[in-house]
Design a protein around this nucleic acid. Sequence first.
DNA 1: AAATTTTTTAATCAAATGATTAAATTACGA
DNA 2: TCGTAATTTAATCATTTGATTAAAAAATTT
Lengths: 252, 252
Amino acid sequence: MAKASRSSRTKQRQAHPSKGPHSAKATRNTGQRRAVSPKDTPSRDSLSTEEKIMQAAKKLFTQNGFAATRTRDIANEAGINLALLNYYFRSKEKLFDIVMIDNFRQFIKGISIHLLDGATTMEQKIQRIVTAYIDFLNNNPDLPIFIINEIRGNTSKIAQQINEEVAPLRAHMFRQIQEAGRQGRITPIDPFHFIANLIGLTVFPFIGRPLLQRVTSTDDQQFRAFMEERKQLVPIWINAIMHAKSPLDRAR
Amino acid sequence: MAKASRSSRTKQRQAHPSKGPHSAKATRNTGQRRAVSPKDTPSRDSLSTEEKIMQAAKKLFTQNGFAATRTRDIANEAGINLALLNYYFRSKEKLFDIVMIDNFRQFIKGISIHLLDGATTMEQKIQRIVTAYIDFLNNNPDLPIFIINEIRGNTSKIAQQINEEVAPLRAHMFRQIQEAGRQGRITPIDPFHFIANLIGLTVFPFIGRPLLQRVTSTDDQQFRAFMEERKQLVPIWINAIMHAKSPLDRAR
DNA sequence: AAATTTTTTAATCAAATGATTAAATTACGA
DNA sequence: TCGTAATTTAATCATTTGATTAAAAAATTT
């Protein structure tokens, strides 16, 4: 009798997990099941369990990556019971996928709106991108290294994401760079170099922050001051680079 | 009787591991115990077990970091029995420390010899550093991201290493940059920016390689060609940056 | 208010992981 | 060649990890 009762409960339990992750995804995307708290920054107490898990997972996965983050770490960070991770997200890996895709989207979003703005010159675009990114990365310093680490090992999921989100930007931006080169406004340069330089000068200091700080004996306050300076300096440098005489073929 | 015999063997076994790591270190540093093979690139068959482990560990730790690399992975890669890792290196962590310090030393070595060369101008230094680093990183593409990942979580071991190895370089280089600024040969710039830009333009493309390749639809062959171009372009860009007019205070 | 569903809890599980053990094998020295 | 030391092997261990389970508690529906 007692065993029969347990058996029926077991069946109900097993039926649910297969629904859990789907409903979790739907909830995340639409926010329908739980209205957003009236406050702009909901405190942890007003978050659903699912939201708590997402916050904790995002923080720890972004900082430490997949392998070095344990489900117990996330549960502790979220202040919830360990079993709830599987209840809501079914597996560590599926939870990670959600975090990864969201992180990537966040990273790209900052650049899209400026790049696609047809009313601005290229110089203005660079200035806006640099400023927006430095501000963004001051608040999300772990994001670039996370993206870079994940894209190294994860060839299919992000690859598709990148192609969907970046393809329109790429075409637009490439046209603009090559047109400027043709008109002689800048030294002709392959868009690869332009992107590598823009990201290298804007984002790299955040990626290499601990190393740079140690190599140059720079404390946190100084680092922040330097990054503020770079909001003005990087566009100037990019401009200088684009006008530097190049020994390479003009045929490129 | 049989038990007594086992007991004596157990004691001998336990006494050895405490010696193992020390002798392993001594061997690594001096190469005394096993002469280097006459061939420049020793094949795996001519390597000692210890060397096989070191090679495998270096490859896998450098690619994947500590948490995502299992001792079994290293043993398989080295083609040896799993227990030998503890026999020779006592623990996964100690093995990792050796790899980490060696990697770091390698990364820094490429820059030291050029920076400390008193017979070259700053322009020549930059050219040599850029060329040497791009050549080096073509053959060790995982190294920068490894260094950057490890320095984020490891505040004491590498910090000391950095201070010991970099301090002399720092003073020397800072003096040279500030002297050039004082003499009006370049726009005055804080050494932080100089270092961030030099590494950002030289090393970052390797760090961000998969991302850059995807964003710009660049295949491996094209990437290599671009890095060859950058051997010439980066020094030119650095030079342009150093001569760009700055809106910042001259008091800096 | 009772029935049902959903969420939470704490214990447990199965597999993986770094490490240890004891015996076998190989290498070295007398 | 024998005795001893060093190395290697395969099994085992103790702990950790992601995941599962069953019961309790809370929330929702009737």
